[in-house]
Simulated assay, not measured.
Amino acid sequence: MNLQEWAAFLPRVRAGEEALYFLGWSEDFPDATNWYDVFLMGSSPSFGAPFPEIMEQIKIGATTADVKVRQEAYDKVNKLVDELVPTIVIANGATSLAFQKNIGNVVVGPYNENFTEMTSESGTIIFSQDGEPVSLMCLDETDGSSFRACLQIFDTLYEFKYGTADLQPAAAEKCEANTDGTEWTCTMRKGVKFSNGAALDANDVVASFGMGWDMKDVNRKGNTGVFQYFKDFFGPKSLNEE
């Protein structure tokens, strides 16, 4: 057995440098596309070369809002994965956390914990998790240990309501889609400021996406520099990637 430190192990797996490995995955949002797109659309070689017949069905499921069409596509994906993809599912995880009895107002859900609302006698909460955050350059990380810390210091456009899988506005006041769900218009929450007092506006959101998505963006200075999630969701290649 070759034990590796988390921050070194994940990039090696995503780069296809580990022929056989043990790894878990928890989805970022409750939809089939977040399981299939991430690993089987060619954004990383962690499962080897992508299979065109699988990619075709994933694309159908990910680009339509028709429930019947999506179900048919993902049913085909399930069968093809069993036949072609070299992976063995060992177990399905569940969310479970333990707190001392002096910690109050605890709400735990499938995607987050309400640390900002919890109470303690000292006013301080000490939390132990399975690993240290790899970095706080959150757009360039893929592990839950980093994301747990990032959720305490950064806002997303939408967030999960504590204890549920329901979405609610966060940095955005609202987001509205066109008829087929291919374009979204978001209205930013007013009065949001950075830690230095500068006002947040839509240009800052665009700049954040540009940094993660565009290989030639002047602000693209992350941890690994891969920004893997942008490749997973919008790829398989980043913008301007050779």
Rank of each mutant, 00 (worst) to 15 (best):
V218F: 14
L40G: 02
K76T: 09
G210V: 04
D140V: 08
A7N: 13
S208M: 03
E27F: 06
K174V: 07
F47L: 15
R12D: 14
L40S: 00
A165K: 14
I90D: 11
D232H: 02
L157W: 01
P169W: 02
I153C: 09
D37G: 13
A207H: 05
F194M: 12
I90F: 03
S122I: 11
V205M: 00
W6P: 10
F233Q: 01
D37R: 07
L3A: 10
K101H: 13
N34G: 11
F9M: 11
K79L: 13
A32F: 03
K216Y: 06
A19V: 08
D204R: 01
F127K: 14
F115C: 03
G42D: 05
P236N: 09
V13E: 06
A32T: 08
V218L: 08
D130Q: 15
D214A: 00
M41R: 14
W213Y: 14
S208E: 02
G123H: 07
Q4M: 14
R189V: 08
F154K: 10
V106Q: 11
A8L: 14
P11L: 10
G181N: 00
M188G: 08
K79N: 11
D155Q: 15
L139C: 01
M188R: 05
A62E: 04
V13C: 02
A98S: 15
G222Q: 04
G181F: 02
A7P: 00
A73Y: 00
F194I: 04
R70I: 04
L151A: 15
A19I: 14
F194Y: 12
K161F: 00
F233W: 06
S238M: 09
L239Q: 04
G131R: 07
R220Y: 05
E117S: 13
E176I: 06
F194K: 08
V38S: 02
M215A: 09
G212E: 03
C150G: 11
F154I: 04
M41I: 06
F154P: 00
N34C: 12
Q71C: 03
P110F: 09
D143T: 05
K216Q: 12
S46D: 08
C186I: 07
M55Y: 05
G225S: 06
K79Q: 13
M188S: 06
L151M: 10
P110I: 03
V134T: 13
A94I: 13
N196V: 03
A171D: 07
G144K: 06
Q100P: 00
Q129G: 11
K101I: 00
D166W: 02
I90C: 11
N2V: 10
V38A: 10
G225Q: 07
D140N: 10
E72A: 15
T64Y: 10
R148K: 11
Y111E: 00
K79M: 02
R14V: 04
T142C: 02
P30G: 09
L157N: 09
A177M: 13
Q71L: 12
A98R: 04
K193P: 01
L20N: 12
K190F: 06
P236Q: 05
D201K: 05
F115L: 11
S43C: 15
W184S: 15
A172I: 06
N223R: 01
Y74G: 00
A207D: 12
E5Y: 12
G235T: 07
E241K: 12
A7F: 08
E113F: 01
S26W: 13
A207G: 05
A98N: 09
N102P: 00
